[in-house]
Design a protein around this nucleic acid. Structure first.
Lengths: 261, 261
DNA sequence: TATTAATATTGATTAAGATCAATCAGAGTA
DNA sequence: TACTCTGATTGATCTTAATCAATATTAATA
């Protein structure tokens, strides 16, 4: 599944959804300590390998809504795999404003950016009560020597993150407000859908300001873009509750810009 | 060096310069087949390890100005370490226009984004005659099992790429035209300087249009921003030849935005 | 060298989004 | 219930950069 075509899908947005295609059929044993099923890592491992990995990711952590999973400046030791919930990552600027660099949901992996400096350079904040598995990075590297398929998979996850970032760069560099919001909604839609939720009816976890920060727009512009899409009957907006009435027209709103359907 | 502070340096831009801090003092033997010195990978390896790595990266390739190092859609097999020259990476949109995702110089590593899908999703085009070492990725993964420090270093390189992409996202999402150009110039300046060239006097390899594509601006806007900086005596522009007259004022132009001087 | 094509600069105008400001809605609290 | 606070919407105005257009300059090639 990882090798498939989705890299050019309609997600111009920072989307960690691909990374967690948790081909459960390959997971033959369950892990008692921490359910690995939801996570992105155990793809294609055998029983014994799952056991080894399970020993590493056994430590669970809960983060309340509004709480920090990690903060900028702190020493990096672990990646975090999201078991449930919804988080944002953001960098805080000197003046106090924050720039959102991503929204993350179940199965996705956080902390990849901290590997290089071994210091967290962004904050990860829960937008709803969330639960994560802590994965000590040194241990992950150690066992990936023993389990080459895990190493390979991890490399693909990192690479996919780069691909996603490039598509966000493209979005920020070349799309108009309405196109950005359309991309954003379609991206969320697909990620919810992949997790078994409705692709056309969902609740946003973030504010207009956070969306704006992520999309390089002011909150008023985000609000106006929502209203515009609603006026055209493409979506229905009720505060944070979004219904997509015509997904094809929403896709057309994205324009050509490197988005295949 | 990789663990140091540069992750918050004044480079808001896609900058692969950090990844190649080629701590030459650690390289005790020279490699006959392909000079590893210029590359990003051999940091901190011993003689024997360098030998192993040398066997993998032995294949050299030249790309003429305007030629492709790789093209979107082709099967991914190797990373490319730049030995000399200057390249851009870009994605081609349906309508024919291209979006530049990065500029790359000696010592930097290309192809990380293709690992995930095993297909190249961007073009890499030489902006001047260039020479690269081809690094078969499967082999790199194999020897990184044998040389854990190489694996660790590779992970840091990938992570750094993610960090850089995030800072470009920040630039595109929150900076004005002049600030973007200032960041761009300072970034180039630093990367040239690290390679032993002047930090205040250099020639651009790319056109205004390519700069604009990278910075999310139209070429006219880039040109005006150059003229503005020149009018203020901060830089001197003679077509592609740039002189930085007052690097501090140029840094101030970037504004606060998450740039620590 | 002459000719052509590509690239760069500059000006005038338009359009998109930021900013400023007022109002409204909902959640939580006293 | 009233009150406060945060978040959302909408309008009016201003700023920035895109667009359109005219040269100018440089590079490429016959």
């Amino acid at each position: 599944m990882i090798n498939g075509a989705p890299y050019l899908e309609n997600n111009l947005l920072h989307d960690s959804s691909q990374q967690n295609l948790l081909d459960v059929t390959h997971i033959k044993s369950s892990c008692a300590t921490c359910s690995l099923r939801e996570l992105c890592l155990p793809v294609g491992l055998n029983d014994q390998e799952i056991q080894i990995l399970g020993d590493v990711v056994s430590h669970k952590r809960k983060v309340r809504r509004g709480g920090y999973l990690h903060q900028s400046g702190l020493k990096f030791q672990s990646l975090f795999a999201i078991r449930s919930g919804f988080l944002k990552t953001c960098v805080l600027e000197e003046d106090g404003r924050q720039q959102v660099t991503g929204f993350h949901m179940t199965g996705e992996l956080l902390g990849l950016d901290a590997i290089s400096s071994e210091i967290h350079i962004c904050d990860a904040i829960a937008l709803e009560d969330s639960e994560v598995c802590e994965i000590p990075f040194t241990k992950l590297e150690e066992i990936s020597i023993v389990i080459p398929s895990l190493m390979r998979h991890f490399h693909k996850i990192m690479s996919r993150e780069i691909v996603r970032d490039h598509s966000v760069m493209l979005l920020l560099g070349s799309m108009k407000a309405e196109e950005r919001l359309a991309s954003f909604l379609l991206n969320l839609s697909r990620r919810f859908s992949m997790r078994g939720y409705s692709e056309s009816d969902f609740n946003l976890r973030m504010t207009r300001e956070e969306i704006g920060s992520y999309l390089g727009l002011k909150l008023e512009t985000v609000s106006r873009a929502f209203s515009k899409l609603q006026d055209e009957n493409i979506i229905t907006v009720d505060n944070k509750h979004i219904q997509i009435n015509d997904i094809n027209r929403l896709k057309m709103k994205m324009g050509n810009s490197s988005c295949i359907t």
